[in-house]
């Protein structure tokens, strides 16, 4: 009768939210302390864009758009790959036992989504700075690139979890991820037309809804499938 749950909050939603926040804070602290991802990816983005600038100057808007989303893809692989690959097996097992797989994957999804939003904004800034701004509506593109960053990070977070379990290898993640990410990239580059064209085509709202639906499906799949990945 002297269970700690009697006077405290019930286990379940509240404690799981706490777990997620704790794990999220752990990732954030680790990131702030090491600053590996942020500066590493920043340098990666800056040097790639600089090479692009040297080779083509200010490209026209379709090329600009295509390059931007391809950059996002590679940034995402680099930034997200670290989230599982950096942690040793023992440490992952420890997190798993104290927090449970669902909280763990949710905290990773949340952290990577925020990381990718930041990275998308930084690379958007660098793109505009170095390759020029071909967009009539840059503000709406800020929102779209955030949405894109979130969508990409969700898929690659789950694939990083798979790749980390299979083999500590980031190349495997790319092999698994590139075919799967095609629909999202196509959707994103269509939705980007909002920022690139003055006259809007119909159906863009539907496409955004489809993209959000895909994101929701990926989160649900991650929650269902991740516990099986982690079982040993």
């Amino acid at each position: 009768m002297n269970s700690p749950y009697i006077c405290g909050p019930k286990p379940g939603s509240i404690s799981s939210a706490k777990h997620i926040l704790t794990l999220f804070r752990k990732d954030l602290l680790l990131e702030i302390r090491q600053q590996y991802t942020f500066y590493g990816v920043l340098l990666y983005v800056a040097s790639t864009i600089f090479v692009l600038y040297l080779s083509m100057g200010g490209p026209e808007s379709t090329v600009w758009k295509g390059l931007f989303w391809m950059m996002q893809l590679f940034i995402c692989v680099n930034a997200v790959a670290k989230s599982f690959l950096q942690e040793g097996k023992g440490r992952l097992l420890y997190f798993y036992t104290i927090a449970g797989p669902k909280d763990f994957i949710l905290s990773k999804l949340l952290f990577n989504a925020l990381l990718m939003i930041l990275m998308s904004l930084v690379s958007l800034g660098l793109f505009v700075l170095m390759l020029g701004n071909p967009m009539p509506n840059p503000l709406s593109f800020v929102a779209i690139s955030c949405l894109g960053g979130i969508s990409l990070s969700l898929v690659f977070t789950f694939l990083a979890a798979i790749a980390a379990r299979a083999q500590q290898n980031a190349a495997l993640m790319a092999i698994l991820g590139f075919p799967l990410i095609i629909p999202q990239l196509l959707l994103l580059s269509k939705i980007s037309n909002i920022a690139f064209e003055d006259v809007l085509q119909g159906g863009l709202a539907t496409m955004s809804a489809v993209l959000l639906g895909l994101d929701a499906m990926i989160i649900a799949l991650s929650l269902i499938l991740f516990p099986f990945l982690w079982k040993d």
Binding site: V155, L176, I182, L186, K190, L214, I218, L221, L225, F228
Partner: peptide, 25 residues
């Protein structure tokens, strides 16, 4: 077996909307 099964399910669930989305785009 286990990781293969997880990827198989995830990939199939992603493939279905892909086949539906691409022709429309």
């Amino acid at each position: 077996a286990r990781i293969g099964a997880v990827y198989n399910i995830f990939a199939f669930a992603m493939l279905m909307p892909t086949i539906w989305i691409i022709p429309r785009l």
